[in-house]
């Protein structure tokens, strides 16, 4: 789903990571269950998300960005 958003706009950079092949990234991002989605390096959630849920998570992550910046 993130890839679909990235296919629509270059403002979204979507990366899928096969964590068994890159255990160092799994450790760095504290992956304990999959799928784990990390937005803007600071907001994360575990579990599958449909389009609407992912948009909500992105909105929450952007709000968190704003809070972090203020």
């Amino acid at each position: 789903m993130a890839h679909a958003m990235a296919a629509f706009t270059q403002k979204v950079v979507a990366e899928v990571i096969e964590v068994q092949e890159f255990p160092d990234l799994g450790n760095a991002y504290q992956v304990r269950g999959v799928p784990l989605t990390v937005i803007n390096e600071q907001y994360s959630f575990t579990g599958a998300a449909n389009e609407q849920m992912l948009v909500e998570h992105v909105k929450n992550a952007l709000l968190k960005n704003l809070e972090g910046a203020s």
Binding site: A2, A6, K11, I17, L25, G26, V31, P35, V38, E41
Partner: peptide, 9 residues
């Protein structure tokens, strides 16, 4: 820009 990383197996 928004970065979305999805970790999968």
């Amino acid at each position: 820009n928004v970065s979305i990383k999805t970790f999968v197996t």
